[in-house]
Simulated assay, not measured.
Amino acid sequence: MRMVSNAVSQNFARKVAAEGVTVAEWTFMRALFDDEGMAPTALADRMGMTRGAISKLADRLAAKGLIRRDESATDGRGQILSLTPAGRAEVPILARLADANDLDYFGVLSGDEREALDRILKALVDRRGLTVTPAD
């Protein structure tokens, strides 16, 4: 399992690196994609990361022009993180890379095999109570 996991992850990391982001940055951007804006604390909770890790990722993505920080309307000291238009345009590109990466690795399986693997992995997620996608 580890060999497959590492191969899939490393291949995907190379693909997103060609787009100028890391896997953790992609995961951050994907988490913001469905929301107009999110407080760093809420994003940290959603991603299962520390507030410090979120802050570092936000710094990197802001420097790349992919996210912006705005003042919270309800908390003068708080921030709201959101994608810039460039960041919002990049997410579907990265999502296609993720899908292509999955197809590269799992497309060699028959439909029945993919369904069985999906069922087993979902059972592990459920039974282990996994709620966030690791992003390191």
Rank of each mutant, 00 (worst) to 15 (best):
M1Q: 05
M3E: 04
M3Q: 05
S5H: 07
N6P: 00
A7P: 03
F12N: 00
E19R: 14
G20N: 09
V21C: 05
V21M: 04
V21Q: 08
D34M: 03
D34G: 10
T41I: 05
D45P: 03
M49A: 11
T50L: 04
R51T: 12
R51C: 02
I54D: 01
S55R: 14
L57A: 09
A58W: 12
R60N: 15
K64R: 15
K64M: 07
L66S: 05
R68T: 14
R68P: 01
R69C: 02
E71N: 11
D75S: 08
R77Y: 07
I80Q: 09
T84P: 04
G87W: 05
A98D: 01
A98Y: 14
D99T: 06
N101Q: 07
D104S: 03
Y105M: 03
V108R: 13
V108A: 09
L109V: 04
S110N: 08
S110L: 10
G111Y: 13
G111V: 15
A116L: 13
L117E: 09
L117T: 12
D118C: 11
L121D: 06
L121Y: 13
K122W: 15
L124E: 10
L124W: 15
L124M: 12
L124H: 13
V125R: 15
R127H: 12
R128H: 11
L130N: 10
T131V: 14
